[in-house]
Design a protein around this nucleic acid. Structure first.
Length: 300
RNA sequence: CCUCGAUUCACGACGG
């Protein structure tokens, strides 16, 4: 069984879910760990519905659910934005010995956050006896995504007062909050912190968040500065620049950026089309839309 | 430390 489980885990981690299912079905007696691997494997690869199917089947076959099971199932509920099942799982967790588990708390916060229930997320956080970085990050992200975004900044300060060192996840969330608040001063403070740190300087997601913050705040020069200094860029970085140019400079500059992009997806196309539309250049917007259809770019 | 778990980035539309 140990060997079977090792193999299942290897395949779920690398995304060969069908192979994992095959192994799972052919093993003589799957145990709790095998089931957990299936639930987590599907949840981690965005097959949330199937993850929950394994979860309920596991439950029906009277396997003991543990903190691993619940955390993965909650993550699936978050992905499905299923507050109903998420709340049911919460009440099961409350009756279990796992309520004080840090992973459990963070998973619950994130589930409520993704479902838009800010108050419930906050309540879970307040009730936690032990917290770690991820618990704080989950709450910061909750306010960043659902608002009020300035609450994300306040939680961030509180987190540091409590002696926690932010990681790249923390900082990316905080920078996003700054973007929606147009809090350039605070965002720039994060920026200096980032460039001074070997750990953060080359982080793609964090760099993208900073570029996007400056772009959204109309500080296209600063956005460009950060963008040019990123060791690695991707379609997200470039799309932020396209939007930024359209907003703060000109659609012409946005288009130039767009034509130099190495990858384009629907989001980048939309960004440019929106740029034209917002400038009243509807004919151009329509032309791009037709070109988009011609090139068969579809949402993923 | 190695069989299973939680958090981060870009545009638009729709629904509420």
């Amino acid at each position: 069984t140990f060997t079977w489980n090792s193999m299942i885990s290897a395949f779920t981690k690398s995304g060969f879910l069908d192979v994992a299912v095959g192994l799972f079905n052919s093993m003589p007696e799957p145990d709790q760990c095998s089931w957990n691997s299936m639930v987590s494997g599907f949840a981690q690869h965005d097959h949330f519905f199937e993850a929950l199917e394994f979860f309920v089947k596991m439950h029906r076959e009277d396997f003991i659910l543990n903190e691993y099971t619940f955390a993965s199932a909650l993550s699936a509920c978050a992905g499905l934005i299923d507050l109903k099942i998420g709340t049911q799982i919460h009440s099961s967790v409350s009756k279990s010995p796992f309520l004080s588990d840090v992973y459990m708390g963070s998973a619950l916060i994130d589930m409520y956050s993704k479902c838009g229930s800010v108050f419930s997320a906050q309540k879970v956080f307040d009730g936690m006896t032990k917290r770690n970085l991820v618990s704080w990050n989950s709450l910061i992200t909750c306010y960043e995504q659902n608002g009020p975004a300035n609450e994300a900044l306040r939680i961030f300060l509180r987190m540091m007062e409590c002696g926690f060192e932010p990681d790249e996840v923390t900082l990316a969330s905080v920078v996003s909050a700054c973007a929606s608040l147009s809090a350039i001063a605070e965002g720039s403070q994060i920026y200096v912190r980032v460039i001074k740190s070997d750990k953060f300087r080359d982080d793609l997601v964090l760099g993208n968040a900073l570029v996007d913050m400056y772009a959204k705040c109309g500080r296209i020069k600063e956005a460009r500065w950060v963008f040019d200094r990123m060791p690695i860029r991707n379609v997200v970085s470039e799309t932020s620049m396209v939007s930024g140019y359209a907003k703060a400079a000109s659609v012409k500059a946005a288009r130039l950026m767009f034509t130099k992009m190495t990858d384009r997806n629907v989001v980048s196309w939309n960004a440019l089309i929106a740029g034209y539309a917002q400038n009243g250049e509807n004919e151009e917007a329509l032309g791009l839309f037709r070109q988009l259809k011609r090139e068969s770019v579809w949402p993923t």
